[in-house]
């Protein structure tokens, strides 16, 4: 039995997207009505522009819904081979992990850990190459950003306890 993500068609994803858009459209119409979608005392009220746009978005969505799910539905699978999903997760999940690490380890250390991990795990590099990458990247970034352009980045717990300069 093929897993569900392999049976999902373009049409199914499109339907999901349309539902999200319609929901957002309703939320925004609601917000624009709260702000006043019409003419105020001296000009258009704050909700006027929002109202026009949300209507445009809903019309566009209905048009796309008609064409892409009813007139000429795209029944190709969204993912063609399982390899796609696998590669996507292998690249995507470490990015999420990286963002979760930043508040704790700061931008520089997290970037180094992430590069080293990705090199060793996905790229099958030898451990010393990966380690070298993980050290060179944060140092190079720190020199360019901090010393070169004086741009501040989130710092690590090591920085706060004076172990590392970043």
């Amino acid at each position: 039995m093929t897993p569900i993500w392999m049976r999902t068609t373009h049409r199914a994803v499109e339907i999901g997207f349309i539902i999200v858009l319609l929901f957002l459209g309703v939320v925004i119409v609601n917000e624009s009505v709260r702000l006043g979608p019409t003419w105020g005392e001296s000009g258009p009220q704050a909700g006027f522009f929002l109202f026009v746009l949300s209507i445009a978005m809903i019309l566009g969505t209905l048009g796309v819904a008609y064409v892409n799910t009813y007139r000429t539905p795209d029944m190709r699978p969204f993912f063609e081979v399982p390899q796609e999903v696998e590669d996507l997760l292998k690249v995507g999940l470490p990015i999420i992990a990286l963002v979760l690490l930043i508040p704790l380890l700061g931008m520089y250390v997290s970037a180094g850990v992430y590069l080293a991990f990705f090199m060793a795990w996905y790229g099958k590099f030898r451990w010393y190459s990966a380690l070298a990458g993980g050290i060179i990247l944060p140092v190079a970034l720190w020199i360019t950003l901090r010393e070169g352009f004086n741009i501040s980045m989130p710092m690590s717990a090591f920085y706060r306890s004076n172990i590392l300069p970043f």
């Binding site: 690249v91 990286l98 931008m107 992430y114 590069l115 090199m119 790229g123 970034l141 950003l145």
Partner: peptide, 14 residues
């Protein structure tokens, strides 16, 4: 690729 992709990601986030 295993060096290129992480570099783009890190630079993007920065």
């Amino acid at each position: 690729y295993a060096i290129m992709a992480p570099l783009i990601v890190v630079l993007s986030l920065i």
